[in-house]
């Protein structure tokens, strides 16, 4: 394993170990996501029939909200007890630390999304599993795009006192395109006559967004973490 990937793995394994012991992020994020879908279902489902096109929007807004909650705590373990200083002093490529943190967030959101997708499919009678691989691709690319930007911003804000306010203020304007692509791609799959070509287009755009923002994040993480 290369040094870069080894460091990312060490950071990821450490985060998973910590999370497996307190389950703080998993439970709060999951509880929030499930609550979100349930509340929306009361507003958008009448007589067992969901408002047309609501499912894709609710799926992605739930991912965005719960993702923001998780991202807000992404570097909290490092901030508490000044562990961030210990990480940054290690003679490693600092973007590898970013990659490790990002992978941890992605795994957490994957678990949350697995629950949310089933819940949305059930409560909104949405045929989410009709094109399961395409949906999986949309969710994967959309989550990578959202989390790559969010993890960078979370790292940027780790030393600020009002980071809870600043994170959404910075994050949403940048990630709105990801959410629009995700919603549009999913809606194309869920409509009565699925538009697969349109879904492919959104998948391609999401891939481009991910490539650009992952590159930017790897490039800027080092200067962002230097005072």
């Amino acid at each position: 394993m290369s040094g870069f990937l080894k460091v990312a793995w060490l950071v990821l394994r450490k985060d998973l170990r910590v999370e497996s012991r307190n389950r703080e992020m998993l439970f709060t994020t999951l509880f929030f996501a499930v609550s979100c879908v349930l509340v929306f279902s009361f507003g958008f489902v009448r007589g067992g029939q969901a408002v047309e096109g609501a499912a894709s929007g609710i799926l992605w807004i739930t991912i965005a909200f719960s993702g923001t909650l998780a991202l807000g705590r992404a570097f909290e373990r490092e901030r508490n007890h000044d562990a961030l200083r210990g990480l940054l002093l290690a003679p490693v490529d600092r973007p590898a630390i970013y990659l490790g943190k990002l992978l941890g967030i992605l795994l957490l959101l994957a678990v949350v999304e697995a629950v949310v997708v089933v819940l949305v499919a059930f409560l909104f009678r949405a045929p989410l599993f009709q094109y399961v691989w395409r949906l999986l691709t949309l969710l994967t690319l959309g989550t990578i795009g959202f989390a790559s930007v969010g993890t960078l911003f979370s790292a940027m804000l780790v030393r600020t006192t009002n980071r809870a306010v600043l994170l959404p203020v910075l994050l949403y304007p940048v990630t709105i395109p990801v959410l629009i692509m995700g919603v549009s791609g999913t809606a194309a799959l869920l409509q009565p006559e699925p538009d697969l070509a349109m879904a492919r287009l959104w998948i391609g755009l999401l891939f481009s967004f991910d490539a650009v923002f992952l590159t930017l994040a790897f490039w800027t993480f080092e200067p962002v973490m230097t005072e």
Binding site: K14, R17, V18, R21, R77, H81, D82, A83, R85
Partner: peptide, 8 residues
């Protein structure tokens, strides 16, 4: 602040 992870 001791730069340790208390959960580990």
């Amino acid at each position: 602040d001791l730069q340790l992870y208390p959960e580990l």
